[in-house]
């Protein structure tokens, strides 16, 4: 089984973004970028399908391909995925804003050529927080989807996926080929070892452009303003539970 994993380069999750004073966007200059945490979980799961881990049989996956859409530097994100254990990478070079719809169309073009049996994505990218790409891709391919996965059990021609939904957990069966998107509790990604980081440097990365894939990536939405969120008034420290209850009474919330 061939598994394809799209990975996105985003602002490191430990960092707080700054809004540009003129409201024209966010300032990412000189900030550390990393692999989107949900994508890291997706790669880890695919690699476990290959190595035999996390309840998967060894060689359940025969090849793991990482794909990223982004600037030249997204190569680093792909190397990161290769160090975790992906076999090869594909970079679709695109500068500036690429919306999930365009990302999904680019991924569809890659999938039409690569013909994977399973595609695992992150449920959301922690920068733009759209939570959309996986579902859009599934619709474009007319494949079934299992989003927000916390457990994947592969079967003959299908996958049983447990999903984190608002009321609890839901298990569904999807016929392969299928799209799965990862939630936080699917697995805990490993730290890549130094030898694997070195090995990753030699793994192939194929570079393409949206034009090669015949996809128009012009944004559909226009951001007209970017602002700081409203700041909360600084509160006070209370000295005791009694004082706290007094304050809550005054505030009229109890």
């Amino acid at each position: 089984m061939k598994v394809l994993v799209p990975v996105k380069r985003v602002l490191d999750y430990n960092l707080k973004v700054r809004v540009k004073p003129d409201g024209s966007g966010v300032d990412l200059s000189n900030l550390k970028m990393s692999i989107n945490p949900f994508c890291e979980i997706a790669i880890e799961e695919a690699v476990r399908m290959k190595e035999g881990g996390g309840g998967h049989a060894k060689d359940a996956a025969t090849e793991v391909i990482a794909v990223s859409i982004g600037p030249e530097q997204a190569q680093e994100t792909l190397r990161n995925a290769l160090a975790i254990g992906a076999d090869r990478g594909i970079l679709v070079k695109a500068e500036g804003e690429v919306e999930p719809l365009a990302v999904a169309k680019l991924l569809k073009a890659v999938i039409d050529a690569e013909k994977p049996d399973l595609v695992i994505l992150g449920k959301q990218a922690i920068d733009d927080d759209n939570n959309a790409t996986a579902q859009m891709l599934a619709a474009l391919l007319d494949w079934p989807q299992a989003t927000f996965a916390s457990k994947i059990v592969l079967g003959a021609g299908k996958a049983s996926v447990t999903r984190e939904v608002d009321g609890g957990l839901q298990t569904i069966d999807v016929e392969l080929p299928a799209i799965i998107s990862t939630d936080l509790r699917l697995n805990e990604p490993r730290y890549a070892s130094l030898p694997n980081i070195m090995k990753a440097k030699k793994k192939p990365i194929d570079v393409k452009t949206p034009a090669d894939l015949g996809v128009d990536v012009a944004p559909r939405l226009k951001t007209i303003k970017t602002a700081e969120p409203g700041k909360r008034q600084a509160g006070i420290k209370v000295k005791s539970a009694a004082e706290l209850v007094g304050k809550l009474k005054e505030a009229g919330v109890i």
Binding site: P100, L101, N130, M136, F148
Partner: peptide, 23 residues
């Protein structure tokens, strides 16, 4: 923007060839 809504909306958007506005 519940798990049900987030699960289905992008599928509808992609089929209509539109980019969705999320959350």
């Amino acid at each position: 923007a519940t798990t049900t809504g987030k699960n289905a909306a992008p599928r509808v958007a992609a089929k209509l060839d539109v980019m969705q506005v999320s959350g």
